[in-house]
Structure formats: structure tokens, C-alpha cells
Simulated scan of single mutants.
Amino acid sequence: MEIVHLLRAVAVELGLHSARFASLNGMHPTDVRALIALMDASRAGQDMTAGRLGALLGLNSAGTTALVDRLERLAHVRRVRDGRDRRRVLVEVDERAVELGQEFFGPLIGQAVELLKGYDERELAAVRGFLDGVRKAAADQGRPTASG
């Protein structure tokens, strides 16, 4: 249980760090989660529609529209027509938002990377397996069951 409690403490601290970033930049914590989702999709070479973004964040259509509008007003995202299907509108993160995030989160990411350099491949595989397993378990807890 000690490791589970440490993981919970890490999650709380990361949430607080993210909330500080949101507050400093006139955003809601959900805005930060949206930017992370957009950057992750971009890194993976995946398109992101507003509908897909809303589904990832657990937002309804109106909430998603308000979120994208808010981020667009802050110049953190832009809506663009899909080059392959002009009927589809994609949401893309602006490079300035990426730079803003790197400026704030970069030192923490750098410290985490430095910590990981102290682990061998076997240990890294164990850490990776544990974190991915917890992530999947948390995602499964949010999914409706067959009975309801």
C-alpha cells in the first residue's frame, strides 16, 4: 500500500502543479487537460476533432464547444478544416501554447528524466508496466459495465 499511497501523492502534486499553471495563464484545469490531449494526439500523428476531444475529457457537446472557444480566444488552439475531408474540423494546439507549457513544465519533466537515468532497462520496464497497469485500471473504472 505504501507505493499506492505514494502514487496518490504524486497524482495530487501533479494536479496542483497543473492547477497553478492554469491559474497563472487564465485557464481552467480542464483547459490544461485538453492541451495535453491535443499535444499527445499531435505527437502520435492523430487528428483531433472537437467530438473526440470532448469524449476524451468526458465533456458533452456544449462543454466541448465552450472549452475550444475559450482556448481559441486565448490563442492556444485553432480550428482547421481537415485537408482530406473538408466537412471535418480539426482542433490543433498552437506552437505558442506548447512553448508556454514547456517553459512551465519543462523543469519538472527534466527532473523526472534525470531520475529515470538512474534505472536500468529491467527497472524501467517494471516502472513502465506498473504505471501503464494503473492507467488502464483507472480508465476501466470510468467505463460503464455491461450491467449499467
Rank of each mutant, 00 (worst) to 15 (best):
G15N: 07
R86Y: 10
P29L: 00
R20L: 10
N25F: 13
L35M: 08
A41Y: 01
A34P: 12
V68C: 02
H28S: 11
G63K: 06
S23C: 12
G51L: 08
V89T: 12
L67R: 07
G45E: 09
E95S: 08
R78L: 01
A34W: 02
A37E: 06
A97N: 04
R86D: 13
A66H: 10
E13W: 03
H17M: 14
D40T: 06
R96L: 01
F21K: 04
R8W: 09
A75Y: 15
V93P: 05
R81D: 10
A75N: 14
Q46M: 11
D82E: 05
E72Q: 09
G83Y: 07
T64E: 10
R84I: 14
V80I: 14
R81M: 12
D69I: 14
D31H: 14
N60G: 15
M48H: 00
A75Q: 14
A37F: 04
D85S: 09
D69S: 12
L90R: 02
R33F: 08
L38S: 02
I36L: 15
A9K: 06
R33S: 10
L16Q: 13
T30G: 00
D82L: 11
F21A: 00
S61P: 08
Q46R: 14
L90W: 06
L24A: 02
R87Q: 01
A75E: 15
R33E: 15
V80L: 13
A62W: 03
L35Q: 02
A11G: 07
V91R: 00
T49Q: 09
R78V: 05
A37C: 10
G15F: 00
S61E: 07
H17V: 15
L24K: 08
V98K: 00
H76T: 12
L35H: 01
G26Y: 11
R43F: 09
V89S: 02
R78G: 02
A34G: 06
A62H: 11
P29R: 05
R84M: 13
